[in-house]
Design a protein around this nucleic acid. Structure first.
Length: 383
DNA sequence: TAGCCGTGGGG
DNA sequence: TCCCCAAGGCT
Protein backbone atom coordinates (compact mmCIF):
# COMPACT_ATOMS: atom_id res chain seq x y z
CA UNK A 1 0.00 0.00 0.00
CA UNK A 2 1.26 3.48 -0.78
CA UNK A 3 2.06 5.80 2.08
CA UNK A 4 -0.41 8.61 2.65
CA UNK A 5 0.34 11.85 0.81
CA UNK A 6 0.02 13.97 3.88
CA UNK A 7 3.49 15.08 4.81
CA UNK A 8 2.37 15.29 8.41
CA UNK A 9 2.62 12.94 11.30
CA UNK A 10 -0.74 12.21 12.83
CA UNK A 11 0.79 12.08 16.26
CA UNK A 12 1.52 15.78 16.11
CA UNK A 13 -0.96 18.24 17.59
CA UNK A 14 -1.62 19.53 14.07
CA UNK A 15 -4.82 17.55 13.82
CA UNK A 16 -6.38 18.78 17.03
CA UNK A 17 -5.32 22.35 16.27
CA UNK A 18 -6.88 22.25 12.81
CA UNK A 19 -10.01 20.65 14.17
CA UNK A 20 -10.44 23.12 17.04
CA UNK A 21 -9.93 26.06 14.68
CA UNK A 22 -12.63 24.66 12.44
CA UNK A 23 -14.88 24.10 15.45
CA UNK A 24 -14.47 27.67 16.65
CA UNK A 25 -15.72 28.87 13.27
CA UNK A 26 -18.36 26.27 12.42
CA UNK A 27 -19.63 24.68 15.61
CA UNK A 28 -23.31 23.87 15.81
CA UNK A 29 -25.48 25.86 18.16
CA UNK A 30 -27.28 23.24 20.21
CA UNK A 31 -29.66 23.83 23.12
CA UNK A 32 -27.62 21.80 25.60
CA UNK A 33 -24.30 23.20 24.51
CA UNK A 34 -22.59 26.02 26.44
CA UNK A 35 -21.82 29.18 24.52
CA UNK A 36 -18.14 29.82 23.81
CA UNK A 37 -16.44 30.74 27.06
CA UNK A 38 -19.37 29.62 29.20
CA UNK A 39 -19.31 26.69 31.57
CA UNK A 40 -21.46 23.74 30.58
CA UNK A 41 -24.21 22.58 32.93
CA UNK A 42 -23.55 18.94 33.91
CA UNK A 43 -27.27 18.22 34.25
CA UNK A 44 -27.94 19.53 30.75
CA UNK A 45 -24.95 17.67 29.33
CA UNK A 46 -25.96 14.41 31.00
CA UNK A 47 -29.61 14.68 29.96
CA UNK A 48 -28.69 15.43 26.36
CA UNK A 49 -26.07 12.70 26.19
CA UNK A 50 -28.53 10.06 27.38
CA UNK A 51 -31.13 11.22 24.87
CA UNK A 52 -28.58 11.33 22.07
CA UNK A 53 -27.54 7.70 22.50
CA UNK A 54 -28.30 6.14 19.11
CA UNK A 55 -30.68 9.01 18.44
CA UNK A 56 -30.48 11.95 16.07
CA UNK A 57 -30.20 15.57 17.18
CA UNK A 58 -33.43 16.34 15.33
CA UNK A 59 -35.34 13.73 17.26
CA UNK A 60 -33.87 14.78 20.60
CA UNK A 61 -34.47 18.53 20.48
CA UNK A 62 -38.21 18.61 21.33
CA UNK A 63 -37.80 15.95 24.04
CA UNK A 64 -34.90 17.80 25.58
CA UNK A 65 -36.93 21.01 25.72
CA UNK A 66 -39.88 19.23 27.31
CA UNK A 67 -37.75 17.50 29.93
CA UNK A 68 -35.86 20.62 30.87
CA UNK A 69 -39.11 22.56 31.06
CA UNK A 70 -40.80 20.01 33.29
CA UNK A 71 -37.75 19.12 35.39
CA UNK A 72 -35.37 22.11 35.30
CA UNK A 73 -33.01 20.65 37.89
CA UNK A 74 -31.70 17.21 38.72
CA UNK A 75 -33.62 17.12 41.99
CA UNK A 76 -36.88 17.74 40.14
CA UNK A 77 -36.26 14.76 37.90
CA UNK A 78 -35.21 12.58 40.84
CA UNK A 79 -38.44 13.45 42.65
CA UNK A 80 -40.67 12.64 39.67
CA UNK A 81 -42.59 9.34 39.44
CA UNK A 82 -41.05 6.91 36.96
CA UNK A 83 -44.29 6.82 34.97
CA UNK A 84 -44.13 10.57 34.43
CA UNK A 85 -40.64 10.14 32.96
CA UNK A 86 -41.79 7.27 30.77
CA UNK A 87 -44.70 9.35 29.48
CA UNK A 88 -42.39 12.15 28.45
CA UNK A 89 -39.95 9.70 26.91
CA UNK A 90 -42.64 7.91 24.89
CA UNK A 91 -41.72 7.91 21.21
CA UNK A 92 -38.01 8.41 21.68
CA UNK A 93 -37.25 4.69 21.89
CA UNK A 94 -34.78 2.58 23.88
CA UNK A 95 -36.90 2.89 27.00
CA UNK A 96 -34.28 1.45 29.33
CA UNK A 97 -32.66 4.85 28.89
CA UNK A 98 -35.65 6.49 30.56
CA UNK A 99 -35.66 3.98 33.41
CA UNK A 100 -31.92 4.42 33.90
CA UNK A 101 -32.22 8.19 33.60
CA UNK A 102 -34.63 8.23 36.49
CA UNK A 103 -32.54 5.78 38.54
CA UNK A 104 -29.41 7.79 37.80
CA UNK A 105 -31.00 11.04 38.95
CA UNK A 106 -31.95 9.44 42.25
CA UNK A 107 -28.49 7.92 42.66
CA UNK A 108 -26.68 11.19 42.01
CA UNK A 109 -28.89 12.84 44.61
CA UNK A 110 -28.18 10.13 47.15
CA UNK A 111 -24.53 9.29 46.49
CA UNK A 112 -23.17 12.55 45.18
CA UNK A 113 -25.28 15.20 46.83
CA UNK A 114 -26.98 16.10 43.59
CA UNK A 115 -23.75 16.93 41.78
CA UNK A 116 -22.49 14.86 38.87
CA UNK A 117 -18.99 13.55 39.64
CA UNK A 118 -16.11 14.48 37.36
CA UNK A 119 -14.28 11.16 37.63
CA UNK A 120 -15.01 8.82 34.76
CA UNK A 121 -14.95 5.79 37.05
CA UNK A 122 -17.64 7.30 39.27
CA UNK A 123 -19.75 8.36 36.30
CA UNK A 124 -19.34 4.94 34.77
CA UNK A 125 -20.88 3.39 37.89
CA UNK A 126 -24.15 5.26 37.38
CA UNK A 127 -27.07 3.57 35.56
CA UNK A 128 -27.22 4.33 31.84
CA UNK A 129 -23.71 5.81 31.75
CA UNK A 130 -21.20 3.70 29.85
CA UNK A 131 -17.71 4.37 28.53
CA UNK A 132 -18.76 6.95 25.97
CA UNK A 133 -21.15 8.94 28.16
CA UNK A 134 -18.79 8.97 31.14
CA UNK A 135 -16.00 10.36 28.98
CA UNK A 136 -18.32 12.88 27.36
CA UNK A 137 -19.58 14.24 30.69
CA UNK A 138 -16.07 14.36 32.16
CA UNK A 139 -14.73 16.25 29.17
CA UNK A 140 -17.65 18.45 28.15
CA UNK A 141 -19.20 19.25 31.53
CA UNK A 142 -16.10 19.15 33.74
CA UNK A 143 -13.26 20.10 31.43
CA UNK A 144 -11.34 16.89 32.10
CA UNK A 145 -9.16 15.25 29.53
CA UNK A 146 -11.09 12.17 28.49
CA UNK A 147 -11.03 9.99 25.38
CA UNK A 148 -14.48 10.33 23.86
CA UNK A 149 -15.33 7.72 21.25
CA UNK A 150 -18.79 7.61 19.72
CA UNK A 151 -20.02 6.59 16.31
CA UNK A 152 -18.88 9.87 14.76
CA UNK A 153 -15.39 9.51 16.18
CA UNK A 154 -15.20 5.92 14.96
CA UNK A 155 -16.06 7.06 11.47
CA UNK A 156 -13.68 10.03 11.44
CA UNK A 157 -10.77 8.06 12.90
CA UNK A 158 -11.32 5.03 10.71
CA UNK A 159 -11.12 7.32 7.67
CA UNK A 160 -8.25 9.40 8.96
CA UNK A 161 -6.14 6.25 9.35
CA UNK A 162 -7.89 4.11 6.72
CA UNK A 163 -8.42 1.37 9.27
CA UNK A 164 -9.11 -1.76 7.28
CA UNK A 165 -10.29 -3.99 10.11
CA UNK A 166 -14.07 -4.03 10.53
CA UNK A 167 -16.10 -2.72 13.45
CA UNK A 168 -16.53 -3.68 16.20
CA UNK A 169 -13.15 -5.42 16.02
CA UNK A 170 -11.46 -2.08 15.28
CA UNK A 171 -12.73 -0.36 18.40
CA UNK A 172 -9.53 -0.86 20.40
CA UNK A 173 -7.35 0.58 17.63
CA UNK A 174 -9.73 3.50 17.13
CA UNK A 175 -9.69 4.29 20.81
CA UNK A 176 -5.91 4.23 20.90
CA UNK A 177 -5.66 6.59 17.92
CA UNK A 178 -8.28 8.90 19.44
CA UNK A 179 -6.28 8.95 22.64
CA UNK A 180 -3.16 10.02 20.74
CA UNK A 181 -5.03 12.86 19.03
CA UNK A 182 -6.93 14.13 22.07
CA UNK A 183 -5.32 17.35 23.36
CA UNK A 184 -4.64 17.99 27.03
CA UNK A 185 -6.54 21.27 26.85
CA UNK A 186 -10.05 21.63 25.45
CA UNK A 187 -10.69 17.90 25.38
CA UNK A 188 -14.42 18.61 25.60
CA UNK A 189 -14.33 20.93 22.61
CA UNK A 190 -12.20 18.40 20.76
CA UNK A 191 -14.83 15.73 21.35
CA UNK A 192 -17.68 17.98 20.27
CA UNK A 193 -15.65 19.08 17.27
CA UNK A 194 -15.18 15.47 16.21
CA UNK A 195 -18.92 14.94 16.52
CA UNK A 196 -19.77 18.10 14.60
CA UNK A 197 -17.30 17.09 11.92
CA UNK A 198 -18.85 13.65 11.72
CA UNK A 199 -22.30 15.15 11.53
CA UNK A 200 -21.62 17.96 9.06
CA UNK A 201 -18.61 16.97 6.95
CA UNK A 202 -17.38 13.45 7.55
CA UNK A 203 -20.85 11.99 7.08
CA UNK A 204 -21.60 8.29 6.60
CA UNK A 205 -22.48 8.79 2.93
CA UNK A 206 -21.04 11.34 0.54
CA UNK A 207 -18.49 12.86 2.91
CA UNK A 208 -17.67 16.48 2.06
CA UNK A 209 -13.90 16.04 1.92
CA UNK A 210 -13.45 19.32 0.03
CA UNK A 211 -14.70 21.19 3.10
CA UNK A 212 -12.88 19.07 5.65
CA UNK A 213 -10.32 20.75 7.91
CA UNK A 214 -8.58 17.39 8.29
CA UNK A 215 -8.43 16.54 4.58
CA UNK A 216 -4.67 17.06 4.46
CA UNK A 217 -4.20 14.46 7.18
CA UNK A 218 -6.70 11.89 5.96
CA UNK A 219 -5.36 8.65 4.55
CA UNK A 220 -8.72 7.50 3.22
CA UNK A 221 -9.18 10.82 1.43
CA UNK A 222 -5.72 10.55 -0.09
CA UNK A 223 -6.69 7.14 -1.42
CA UNK A 224 -10.06 8.40 -2.63
CA UNK A 225 -11.77 5.89 -0.38
CA UNK A 226 -13.31 8.02 2.36
CA UNK A 227 -16.78 6.67 1.72
CA UNK A 228 -15.60 3.10 2.25
CA UNK A 229 -14.90 3.58 5.95
CA UNK A 230 -15.70 2.48 8.56
CA UNK A 231 -15.75 -1.11 7.37
CA UNK A 232 -18.39 -3.03 9.26
CA UNK A 233 -19.02 -6.66 10.05
CA UNK A 234 -22.00 -8.12 8.18
CA UNK A 235 -25.24 -8.02 10.11
CA UNK A 236 -27.80 -10.69 10.61
CA UNK A 237 -31.07 -10.58 8.76
CA UNK A 238 -34.14 -9.39 10.60
CA UNK A 239 -36.84 -12.01 11.36
CA UNK A 240 -40.56 -11.30 11.27
CA UNK A 241 -42.71 -11.83 14.34
CA UNK A 242 -46.50 -11.92 14.55
CA UNK A 243 -48.70 -10.72 17.36
CA UNK A 244 -52.28 -9.91 18.32
CA UNK A 245 -53.58 -6.92 20.24
CA UNK A 246 -57.03 -6.04 21.51
CA UNK A 247 -58.55 -2.58 21.36
CA UNK A 248 -61.43 -2.48 23.82
CA UNK A 249 -63.45 0.71 23.77
CA UNK A 250 -66.02 1.81 26.28
CA UNK A 251 -69.12 3.75 25.26
CA UNK A 252 -67.57 6.99 26.47
CA UNK A 253 -64.48 6.40 24.35
CA UNK A 254 -62.17 5.16 27.11
CA UNK A 255 -59.72 2.44 26.05
CA UNK A 256 -58.40 -0.52 28.02
CA UNK A 257 -54.65 -0.36 28.66
CA UNK A 258 -52.17 -2.38 30.64
CA UNK A 259 -48.52 -1.99 31.57
CA UNK A 260 -45.77 -4.11 30.10
CA UNK A 261 -43.25 -5.87 32.34
CA UNK A 262 -40.73 -3.49 33.88
CA UNK A 263 -37.76 -4.74 31.87
CA UNK A 264 -37.12 -6.00 28.37
CA UNK A 265 -38.70 -4.79 25.16
CA UNK A 266 -40.73 -1.61 25.74
CA UNK A 267 -40.21 -2.28 29.44
CA UNK A 268 -42.53 -0.38 31.75
CA UNK A 269 -44.47 1.18 28.89
CA UNK A 270 -48.24 0.94 28.34
CA UNK A 271 -49.98 -1.15 25.71
CA UNK A 272 -53.35 -2.44 24.66
CA UNK A 273 -53.66 -6.05 25.86
CA UNK A 274 -52.34 -8.79 23.64
CA UNK A 275 -50.36 -11.98 23.44
CA UNK A 276 -46.75 -12.90 22.93
CA UNK A 277 -45.10 -12.17 19.59
CA UNK A 278 -44.12 -15.35 17.81
CA UNK A 279 -42.51 -16.45 14.60
CA UNK A 280 -45.83 -17.75 13.27
CA UNK A 281 -49.29 -16.19 13.51
CA UNK A 282 -51.53 -17.57 16.23
CA UNK A 283 -54.19 -19.89 14.84
CA UNK A 284 -56.74 -19.01 17.51
CA UNK A 285 -55.95 -15.42 18.41
CA UNK A 286 -59.25 -14.78 20.19
CA UNK A 287 -58.26 -17.07 23.02
CA UNK A 288 -55.75 -14.33 23.93
CA UNK A 289 -58.48 -11.69 24.33
CA UNK A 290 -58.50 -9.97 27.74
CA UNK A 291 -62.28 -10.22 28.00
CA UNK A 292 -65.12 -11.93 26.17
CA UNK A 293 -66.60 -9.53 23.65
CA UNK A 294 -67.73 -9.23 20.05
CA UNK A 295 -64.18 -8.96 18.67
CA UNK A 296 -63.77 -7.87 15.08
CA UNK A 297 -60.52 -8.11 13.23
CA UNK A 298 -59.31 -4.84 11.73
CA UNK A 299 -58.34 -4.86 8.10
CA UNK A 300 -54.65 -5.20 7.46
CA UNK A 301 -52.00 -5.23 10.15
CA UNK A 302 -50.04 -2.73 12.15
CA UNK A 303 -46.41 -3.11 11.18
CA UNK A 304 -43.44 -1.93 13.16
CA UNK A 305 -39.72 -2.46 12.81
CA UNK A 306 -37.61 -2.93 15.91
CA UNK A 307 -33.87 -3.18 16.08
CA UNK A 308 -33.68 -6.93 15.72
CA UNK A 309 -37.05 -7.98 14.30
CA UNK A 310 -40.07 -6.72 12.39
CA UNK A 311 -43.53 -7.06 13.87
CA UNK A 312 -46.85 -7.64 12.18
CA UNK A 313 -49.55 -6.92 14.70
CA UNK A 314 -53.10 -8.08 14.07
CA UNK A 315 -55.54 -5.81 15.89
CA UNK A 316 -58.99 -6.77 17.08
CA UNK A 317 -61.55 -4.24 18.26
CA UNK A 318 -64.68 -4.51 20.35
CA UNK A 319 -67.11 -2.41 22.33
CA UNK A 320 -66.77 -3.11 26.03
CA UNK A 321 -69.73 -5.11 27.35
CA UNK A 322 -71.77 -3.12 29.85
CA UNK A 323 -71.29 -5.83 32.45
CA UNK A 324 -67.54 -5.81 32.08
CA UNK A 325 -65.30 -6.45 35.02
CA UNK A 326 -61.95 -4.72 34.36
CA UNK A 327 -59.25 -7.42 34.17
CA UNK A 328 -56.45 -7.42 36.73
CA UNK A 329 -53.61 -5.10 35.83
CA UNK A 330 -55.71 -3.21 33.29
CA UNK A 331 -57.44 0.14 33.45
CA UNK A 332 -59.57 2.26 31.17
CA UNK A 333 -57.99 5.49 29.98
CA UNK A 334 -60.20 8.36 28.83
CA UNK A 335 -59.94 9.14 25.14
CA UNK A 336 -58.55 12.61 25.76
CA UNK A 337 -55.85 11.22 28.05
CA UNK A 338 -54.46 8.65 25.62
CA UNK A 339 -51.92 11.01 24.08
CA UNK A 340 -50.32 11.66 27.46
CA UNK A 341 -49.92 7.97 28.30
CA UNK A 342 -46.57 6.16 28.14
CA UNK A 343 -47.48 4.54 24.85
CA UNK A 344 -44.59 3.57 22.58
CA UNK A 345 -44.90 4.30 18.88
CA UNK A 346 -46.04 0.79 18.04
CA UNK A 347 -48.93 1.06 20.48
CA UNK A 348 -49.83 4.52 19.23
CA UNK A 349 -50.24 2.98 15.80
CA UNK A 350 -52.43 0.22 17.23
CA UNK A 351 -54.55 2.72 19.19
CA UNK A 352 -54.90 4.91 16.11
CA UNK A 353 -56.07 1.90 14.11
CA UNK A 354 -58.64 1.02 16.75
CA UNK A 355 -59.94 4.57 16.99
CA UNK A 356 -60.15 4.81 13.21
CA UNK A 357 -62.17 1.62 13.17
CA UNK A 358 -64.79 3.04 15.54
CA UNK A 359 -64.79 6.46 13.88
CA UNK A 360 -65.32 4.77 10.53
CA UNK A 361 -68.06 2.59 11.95
CA UNK A 362 -69.82 5.61 13.37
CA UNK A 363 -69.51 7.44 10.09
CA UNK A 364 -70.99 4.49 8.22
CA UNK A 365 -73.86 4.36 10.66
CA UNK A 366 -74.48 8.08 10.11
CA UNK A 367 -74.41 7.63 6.36
CA UNK A 368 -76.86 4.80 6.57
CA UNK A 369 -79.21 6.86 8.65
CA UNK A 370 -79.00 9.79 6.27
CA UNK A 371 -79.28 7.95 2.99
CA UNK A 372 -81.17 4.88 3.99
CA UNK A 373 -83.48 6.08 6.74
CA UNK A 374 -85.44 2.83 6.53
CA UNK A 375 -82.42 0.90 7.79
CA UNK A 376 -81.96 -0.74 4.44
CA UNK A 377 -78.83 -2.84 4.13
CA UNK A 378 -75.89 -1.41 2.31
CA UNK A 379 -72.94 -3.07 0.67
CA UNK A 380 -69.91 -3.22 2.87
CA UNK A 381 -67.00 -1.12 1.91
CA UNK A 382 -64.50 -2.85 -0.26
CA UNK A 383 -61.25 -0.99 0.08
C1' DT B 1 -18.99 -11.35 23.24
C1' DA B 2 -22.75 -10.87 20.83
C1' DG B 3 -27.58 -10.32 21.26
C1' DC B 4 -31.04 -7.31 23.04
C1' DC B 5 -33.02 -2.82 22.98
C1' DG B 6 -36.87 1.92 19.22
C1' DT B 7 -37.71 5.18 16.16
C1' DG B 8 -37.99 8.22 12.23
C1' DG B 9 -35.57 10.29 8.42
C1' DG B 10 -32.99 10.03 4.21
C1' DG B 11 -30.87 8.09 0.04
C1' DT C 1 -39.82 0.15 -0.96
C1' DC C 2 -35.98 -1.03 1.38
C1' DC C 3 -31.93 -0.38 3.67
C1' DC C 4 -28.95 2.34 6.38
C1' DC C 5 -28.23 5.00 10.01
C1' DA C 6 -28.02 8.10 14.74
C1' DA C 7 -23.59 11.56 20.64
C1' DG C 8 -24.56 3.33 23.29
C1' DG C 9 -25.54 0.53 27.46
C1' DC C 10 -26.57 -3.74 29.57
C1' DT C 11 -26.10 -8.58 30.23
Amino acid sequence: MEPPLTGYSLSEPSVSRALLAWYDAHRRDLPWRAKPGEQADPYAVWLSEIMLQQTTVTAVKPYYATFLGQWPRLEDLAAAPLDAVLRQWAGLGYYSRARNLHACAIMVMQRHGGVFPAEESLLRALPGIGAYTAAAIAAIAHGRRAVVVDGNVERVISRLFAIESPLPEAKAVIRAETDRLTPNERAGDFAQAMMDLGSMICTPRQPQCLLCPLAAFCVAKAEGRAGEFPIKAPKREKPIRHGVAFFLRRGDGAVLLTRRPARGLLGGMMEIPGGAWNETPDLEPLRLAPVAADWQRLEGEVTHVFTHFALRLSVYAAKAPSTLKVPDGCRFVAEEDLDAEALPSLMRKAVAAGRAFFADKQERAGERKKRWPNGEARNSRSN
